[in-house]
């Protein structure tokens, strides 16, 4: 078991098989109602991915997700870094973020649609809101943990405040920022899926509810598999990037969790 686990990819494959087997058992032995065996759903996955309309829908969703995520990172990292280095900035933002934290961001979808319509803007804005907080939080923690002495030596070398933030604080906080981004990318997907399930008109939500209305349960489960794989890939891809960029930092076992 231990030796098999050491080969990269093998544990994940075994885990996937185990999940499918448990699913199969639940559907056929325990006979959970409304749960078909996984094999039909699995066969439906390539059908969805080759169907032109579905594919366009999914790709459009992914595009919104990337845009919302990038904008959020561009906004959140500087804010977080500043908060970590200035007590006043931290005091300014902290209560506001504490209030925003338990607001379900995807639930703002109806209100945002009221203001901005059903277009791209609304969907990107919701993702932006969903991703920002965790990235700010982790950048904040990372920047707060930067050793004072490192900054003193940098100041002694003649670096100004901006240069110190860019060339000392940012790289030192990068491992923690990456943790935030990893959580953020998963949250971007979650927020995207949730908001589209609430709005229903387009994208993944549309596919889901069409299938539900027409009682194509295999399609429903196939969509879940597709979204699940997307989530895993987002997380795994980000961890791979992190490891490439930050081989020097201790491995982070933090697994991204969150909710829109």
């Amino acid at each position: 078991m231990a030796r098999l686990n050491a080969i990269p990819g093998v544990p994940v494959l075994i885990a996937c098989l185990a999940i499918l087997l448990i699913w199969d058992l639940l559907s056929r032995v325990v006979m959970v109602s409304g749960l078909p065996p996984p094999w039909g759903a699995l066969q439906e996955v390539p059908v969805i991915l080759t169907d032109k309309e579905s594919l366009v829908n999914i790709l459009a969703s992914l595009r919104r997700m990337s845009i919302g995520f990038s904008l959020a990172v561009a906004f959140a990292v500087p804010v977080g870094l500043l908060m970590g280095r200035s007590r006043l900035v931290a005091a300014f933002f902290n209560p506001l973020f504490m209030i925003i934290y338990p607001v379900p961001k995807a639930a703002l979808m109806p209100i945002i649609m009221l203001w901005l319509g059903v277009g791209e803007m609304s969907k990107i804005l919701v993702i932006f809101l969903g991703v920002s907080l965790p990235v700010i939080y982790h950048s904040y923690q990372g920047s707060k943990a930067v050793e004072e002495k490192m900054l003193w030596s940098a100041a002694a070398m003649g670096l100004g405040p901006m240069a110190r933030l860019l060339r000392v604080v940012f790289p030192a906080a990068l491992p923690e920022i990456m943790v935030g981004c990893r959580t953020g990318v998963v949250l971007a997907l979650i927020t995207m899926v949730t908001s589209e399930m609430i709005a229903r008109q387009t994208g993944i939500g549309n596919i889901f509810f069409n299938a539900l209305d027409m009682a194509q349960y295999d399609t429903v489960y196939a969509m879940i598999i597709v979204i699940g794989i997307l989530g895993f890939l987002c997380d795994w891809g980000f961890e791979a990037v992190r490891r490439m960029l930050l081989g020097w930092a201790a491995p982070v076992h933090d697994i991204a969790v969150g909710s829109a």
Partner: peptide, 12 residues
Amino acid sequence: VIRVLAPVPKIA
């Protein structure tokens, strides 16, 4: 199993 399931958007 957790590594696979944790980042899956549960809402789906």
